[in-house]
Computed example of a mutant assay.
Amino acid sequence: MASIAKRPDGRWRARYRDAAGKEHAKHFRRKVDAQGWLDQETSKLVTGMWVAPTKQKLTVGEWCDTWLEGYGTRRKGTVRQAKTHIVVIKKTFADQRLADVKPSAVKAWTAQLQETYAPSTTYAIYRRLAQILGDAVHDGLLPRSPCSRRTSPGQAKPRPYVASTAQVWALYDAFPAHLQPAVLLGAFAGLRVAEAAALRVVDVDFMRGVISPAIQYPLEPLKSDTAKTPIPVPDELALQVAAAVEASGGSTIVTDVVGKPTTPWAIERAMRAARDQVQPDEKRGVEKLPDGFRFHDLRHYFASLLIAAGLDVKVVQTRLRHASATTTLNTYGHMFPDKDKSAREAIAAAFASRADSLRTKPS
């Protein structure tokens, strides 16, 4: 309900009630101004664009802090990444009111980010801002988010570098002996670096040839239930990993020099050192690895092995422990063989069958 009444002092008082029944009022010298304000506020209520006056002063920085408190139930690594993104967001928007952040400002901000960060990082930070402002809309702090397809910087999708088998074995040879199992787990089982560092001896069934990831470094649950999918491995890999375990005597597959559990950072340091040691060798078919080659690129090699073997996308998805086939196709779709020729041959066979039937048709 809304109304306008003249006060004893000659001013006009406009009043309305929000959806919760709370009354809001404002005074004006002229009735036409009171009516204009009242029409504006009631229109916002009807269209869902209304925000409580007490919430309109909330800044982006204040809301980020509140949002982060609720986000703290996620995994430590996920929360740590969110905090890193928020530091960047606050540098530009901390003191701005939520309602004052316009799409044009978001677009200009992402353009500035691209001057400093890689496209993938820029997109990740932008998505964090979109997530935070989207939750502000859900909480009734904003009528609508300024982030949309028009403001998005676009998600970079560079094709992953796929090492050759010769390069992978050259890396293996260049790794310290106690960390060599990590190369095997990444290249031939597709484990991520945090999974490889935390893989325990009890997580591997050496007799059946099955690796069952259960935790990731540092003794945290895996990122999803899909990541727990058992990975079948050949006897050759199981035997080589078993030999490494016997030599180290540790409780984990990958260890430090004294047989204690290692860390992802130790593995990545070894990767950088080994990467630089791998030199071109025409006889062995080894090419120099790119400077940005990292442990996760061994996982791309694992995917390439599966695809080259002719496995379909659902099998590849399962072996990589992706949540959906979409993720697999978005990352490795270009590796799957071109089916145009097969499609043409299938249709041509139908035409050939028709031609054969006409030739043998009784006259």
Rank of each mutant, 00 (worst) to 15 (best):
T110S: 02
W169E: 05
A156F: 03
E246R: 14
V32A: 12
V202A: 15
L237T: 00
D65A: 13
Q317D: 00
W50V: 03
S148R: 10
A227K: 02
V278Y: 02
A166H: 02
L58N: 05
H27R: 15
W109G: 00
G310A: 05
V32K: 15
Q40C: 08
V257S: 15
K341G: 06
P160I: 03
T66F: 03
L306P: 04
G61P: 15
K157W: 08
V210Y: 12
K83E: 07
D33P: 00
T121G: 03
A243M: 09
L133D: 02
D139I: 01
A197L: 12
G285Q: 11
T110N: 00
A266V: 13
G134F: 14
A242R: 15
S43T: 14
H334V: 01
Q216V: 05
V162K: 03
Y332T: 03
R284L: 15
V101H: 01
T121M: 09
L129T: 02
V278R: 01
L38H: 04
V257L: 14
T42R: 14
A111W: 00
Q96W: 12
S251I: 15
D281H: 06
A108T: 02
L141Q: 06
W50M: 07
R149K: 14
A266S: 14
T262L: 12
M271L: 13
